[in-house]
Design a protein around this nucleic acid. Structure first.
Lengths: 240, 240
DNA sequence: CCGGACAGTTGATCTGGATCAAATCGCAGG
DNA sequence: CCTGCGATTTGATCCAGATCAACTGTCCGG
C-alpha cells in the first residue's frame, strides 16, 4: 500500500517486524534493529473479524495495536445508545494512547482486518527511550487531530448530500490504487456505520447515495462497491 | 489560575519566562533554566484585542504563541462563508503546529487576551533538543484530540438544547474559581461564535439559552454573564 | 427450493431547527 | 439626552432530515 511505504521510508530504515513479516510504519519505522527484534519476540499478528472490538470504551487495555490490513472505526456511544464514529484508521496506523490506560472510545474492526498486537509496557518503554518513535506517534496524533477537526466542519456545517460526498471522498482518498480518471473502491462501512460517522440516519444516507447515483456522480456496482467516474464531480459536491 | 499552576508543577520546575514574568506551562515547564533565559530574550509578551487574528487560515506563520490570559478560538471557514469553530484554547495552552508552517485553520482571540510570542525556529530547535518539551506538546496534542472527538459527538448526535448545555459546561469547567455549589462565569463567545461552535444558528442558540433560563438551569445576569446554580442540573441536560 | 433474518431502499408524514422578519437591548458618539 | 448601529431576542413560517412504515433484495440453513 502506498501510504505504508511512504510513511516508512520517511521515518527511517524500513525493516520488517519479526512477528509481522511486515514493516508497519508508525511503530517499526522509528526503531533500531535490536528494538525491532525485541518487539518481534513479544508482539503478535492477529486476524480480527469485522465487528469485533479491539479496544473497549472506558476499559483498560494492556495492549497497543498496529493496523496491518483493513479499516478500524473509533466510536463513542452515549448512555442512551446514540453513537458517533469519531475516526477511521487505515493501515499502517497505530491504535492506542501511549501512557494512558483508560480509553474514552472504543476501536472496532470495520472490515476484516489484521493487526499487530504489542504489549503496552514494552512499547511505553521504547517510547521513552527513542525520540524517533515519540516523534512518529506525535505526528500521527497531529494527523488525527487535523482529520478530526476537518470532520467537525463536516458534522457541523455541511448538508446531508455534502456529508455523504465527503465520506466517499475520504474513503476514495485512502483506498487502493486507482486509475487517473476514475476511482473504484469497496465501502468499508455499512449504511449504519456511515450514518453514525456523518451524524445522519441510515435512511438519509441511502437516499443521498441514490441521489448521487442519479446525478451521475457515482455508480453503485453493488451494495459495498462504488465507482467514481470523475473525482472532480465528487469534489464539487463537497464545496470545499 | 488553576490550570496553569497544576500544569507547570506537573511538568517540572516552575520557573518564570523572562519576557512574560510568568510560568507558561506547556512550553516553559519543560525547559532548563538556560533555555528559559534564551527563550525569554527572544520571546515577546503581547496584548491582543478580541477578534484579532493570531494565525490566519492557509497562511504561513513564523511564530508560535502561548496563551497567558484570555480565550482563543480555532476556526475553519468554507469558501462560501460557512464557519465552524473547531476548538477553544485557554491559558496556558500552546498555539501552533510544530515543524509545520501551513495551517489549515485560523486562531483568533475570542476575548481580549495576552499571548507570549515565540520565534518558530528557536522553539523548533528546542523541541528537537529537549525530550520533555516534545512530550509536553505531544500531551497537549492528545488532549486536544480528545476534546475534538468529544465535540464531534456533540456536533453529530446531540440536540440543540444538549449542545448549548454542553458549551456552558465546557466553559464552566475551564472558568475561574467557583464555589462548591454554584458557578458563575463570563461567556468568552458571542452568540454568533457559540452558533459556529455548535453547528447551529444564532436564533436557535438564543432560544435554547432562554429555554434553559426558564427551566431554572441557568441565570443570565447579563448578555455575557451566566450563573449556574447547580452544576448537576446542567450536566443532566447533556445526557452523558 | 423455501423461509426467515438482516441490510438496504423507498414512500409518507412529522418536526426540530433554519430562515425570514420584526422588535428590543445596549452602548458609543454627538 | 438623543441617535444610530450592531448584537440579541422573539415571533411566524418553512423545509431538510428524522421518524414511521412497507417493501425488496440477498444470503444462509434446512
Amino acid at each position: 500500500m502506498d501510504v505504508a511505504r511512504s510513511k516508512v521510508s520517511e521515518a527511517g530504515t524500513p525493516v520488517a517486524c519479526r512477528s509481522c513479516q511486515a514493516r508497519h510504519g508508525v511503530v517499526c519505522g522509528a526503531l533500531s534493529s535490536s528494538q525491532l527484534r525485541e518487539l518481534g519476540r513479544h508482539s503478535l499478528r492477529r486476524k480480527v473479524d469485522a465487528g469485533s472490538e479491539i479496544v473497549a470504551q472506558a476499559s483498560e487495555s494492556s495492549f497497543y495495536s498496529n493496523i496491518m490490513r483493513g479499516v478500524v472505526k473509533l466510536c463513542k456511544v452515549m448512555p442512551d445508545g446514540r453513537q458517533q464514529i469519531v475516526g477511521l484508521q487505515f493501515a499502517p496506523d497505530f491504535v492506542g494512547r501511549p501512557f494512558v490506560r483508560e480509553s474514552t472510545l472504543s476501536a472496532e474492526a470495520a472490515t476484516d482486518a489484521e493487526i499487530c498486537v504489542v504489549p503496552r509496557n514494552l512499547l511505553d518503554r521504547m517510547i521513552s527511550e527513542t525520540r524517533e518513535l515519540q516523534r512518529s506517534l506525535h505526528d500521527q496524533a497531529l494527523k488525527e487531530l487535523d482529520a478530526a477537526r476537518e470532520w467537525m466542519l463536516t458534522l457541523g456545517r455541511r448538508t446531508a448530500e455534502e456529508k455523504v460526498a465527503s465520506l466517499l471522498h475520504l474513503i476514495a482518498t485512502h483506498a487502493e490504487p486507482q486509475t487517473a480518471t476514475s476511482t473504484a473502491f469497496d465501502l468499508p462501512l455499512s449504511r449504519a456505520d456511515i450514518a453514525d460517522f456523518l451524524g445522519l440516519t441510515i435512511e438519509t444516507v441511502s437516499r443521498q447515495l441514490t441521489r448521487l447515483r442519479k446525478e451521475g456522480v457515482i455508480r453503485i456496482e453493488n451494495i459495498r462497491h462504488i465507482v467514481v467516474p470523475g473525482m472532480d464531480e465528487l469534489e464539487k459536491k463537497i464545496s470545499a
